Simulated scan of single mutants.
Amino acid sequence: MKLSRFINILCIVTGGAIAIYSQAEKQQNEYLLIGGIVLLMFGLYRLSRNVPSKFENREEETFVKTENDND
């Protein structure tokens, strides 16, 4: 688990650094920018897969109860 998280964060940092580096030059290298963004998004996707959903047990956590109209 820790190795996977480290790889995800490394992808995010490396992709961000590559994207910033490609923007800093006078003549931008579009392929380098695209590669940096792809690496950044890949790391973000892998990191977000392990985050649990906020609404996983939606029925159990509601505060409003429904009433049956049997009139």
Rank of each mutant, 00 (worst) to 15 (best):
K2T: 08
K2Y: 11
L3K: 15
S4D: 10
R5M: 11
R5Q: 13
F6C: 09
F6H: 11
I7K: 11
N8P: 07
I9H: 08
L10W: 09
L10R: 07
C11I: 02
C11D: 12
C11A: 06
I12P: 04
V13Y: 07
T14F: 13
G16M: 06
G16Y: 01
G16N: 04
A17P: 05
A17E: 09
A17Y: 15
A17L: 15
I18V: 15
I18R: 03
A19C: 04
A19Q: 04
I20Y: 13
Y21W: 08
S22Y: 00
Q23K: 10
Q23H: 09
K26R: 09
K26W: 11
Q27V: 14
Q27P: 02
Q28W: 03
Q28H: 14
Q28S: 07
N29T: 04
E30C: 07
Y31C: 06
Y31I: 14
L32P: 00
L32K: 02
L33Q: 02
G35Q: 01
G36F: 00
I37C: 10
I37P: 01
I37R: 08
V38C: 15
V38T: 14
L39H: 00
L40T: 15
M41H: 05
F42Q: 02
G43Y: 01
L44E: 06
Y45A: 10
R46V: 04
L47E: 12
L47A: 12
L47P: 02
S48M: 12
R49L: 09
N50V: 06
N50A: 09
V51G: 00
P52F: 02
S53N: 07
S53D: 06
S53V: 01
S53L: 06
K54G: 02
F55C: 04
F55Y: 12
R58N: 07
R58P: 05
E59P: 04
E60P: 03
E60H: 09
E60R: 13
E61W: 05
E61F: 06
T62S: 08
T62D: 05
V64A: 07
K65A: 14
K65L: 13
E67D: 11
N68Q: 04
D69A: 11
D69S: 11
N70P: 00
D71T: 09
